[in-house]
C-alpha cells in the first residue's frame, strides 16, 4: 500500500470527523457518523492482511489521540489503545469475510462499516468500562454502548459517500493484492 496516500486520506478523514461532528450529530444524543471507520474498512477490504491490520491500528490510535475521555467536570485525559484495538478487531473480522462480499460494491463497504463499527464499539466500551473501575472517569457504559452502536449504523451513510470517492482512487493506494490489481487494470481498460 502507498502509505503516503493512506496518510493523506487519513488526515482528511480525521479532519472531516472533527469538523463535521456537531452538524451531523443527532441532537440531543451524541450519535454521530465516523469518516475514519469507512476508510479503515476500505483498506481492510483491499490491502494484504498485515497491512490492513497495521493501518487499522494506526487509524484507531489517531481516533484515540483526538478523542479524550472525561475524567471529571473540568478535566480530561487521552487514552491510547481502545480504538486501536477495536479497529484491529474489526479489521480481522473484515479480513475473514471479505472473500464473501463483492469488494467493488459500495453496499459491501456500507455493510462492513456497520459491522466494523459494532465490533469496535463493543471493544472500546469494554475497555473503558474496565478502566472506569479504577480510574476517575465520567462513564455510562450502557448509554455509551447504545450511542456507539447507533453511530455505527449512521456511519453507513458516510461509508456510502466515501466509497464513491475511494473506489476511483483505488490505484493511488497501490494495494498489493491480486484483486486490487485486477480492479485497477479494469479501470484503466475502461478509461
Amino acid at each position: 500500500m502507498n502509505w503516503v496516500t493512506f496518510a493523506i486520506v487519513a488526515w482528511i478523514c480525521l479532519g472531516l470527523e472533527t469538523g463535521l461532528r456537531d452538524v451531523l450529530q443527532l441532537n440531543p444524543t451524541a450519535i454521530a457518523p465516523s469518516f475514519v471507520l469507512p476508510l479503515m474498512v476500505f483498506v481492510a477490504i483491499w490491502a494484504p492482511s498485515g497491512v490492513a491490520m497495521a493501518g487499522a491500528m494506526l487509524l484507531g490510535l489517531l481516533v484515540d489521540l483526538t478523542g479524550p475521555i472525561a475524567t471529571g467536570a473540568d478535566s480530561r485525559a487521552v487514552v491510547a489503545g481502545p480504538h486501536a484495538l477495536g479497529y484491529l478487531g474489526a479489521s480481522v473480522l473484515i479480513l475473514n469475510v471479505r472473500g464473501m462480499v463483492i469488494r467493488r460494491n459500495p453496499v459491501s463497504v456500507v455493510a462492513l462499516t456497520v459491522l466494523a463499527g459494532i465490533v469496535s464499539g463493543i471493544v472500546v466500551v469494554a475497555l473503558h468500562t474496565l478502566r472506569s473501575m479504577y480510574d476517575p472517569m465520567v462513564w455510562d457504559a450502557s448509554g455509551q454502548l447504545l450511542t456507539r452502536l447507533a453511530s455505527a449504523l449512521y456511519s453507513g451513510v458516510t461509508a456510502l459517500a466515501l466509497s464513491l470517492i475511494l473506489f476511483p482512487a483505488l490505484p493511488l493506494f497501490a494495494f498489493a493484492t491480486a484483486q486490487a490489481s485486477a480492479h485497477t487494470r479494469g479501470m484503466r481498460r475502461h478509461a
Binding site: G67, V138, R148, S151
Partner: peptide
C-alpha cells in the same frame, strides 16, 4: 477549530 472525536463528551 474542531471538536473532540470521542462520542462520550463534547469539547
Amino acid at each position: 477549530i474542531g471538536i473532540s472525536t470521542d462520542l462520550s463528551r463534547l469539547l
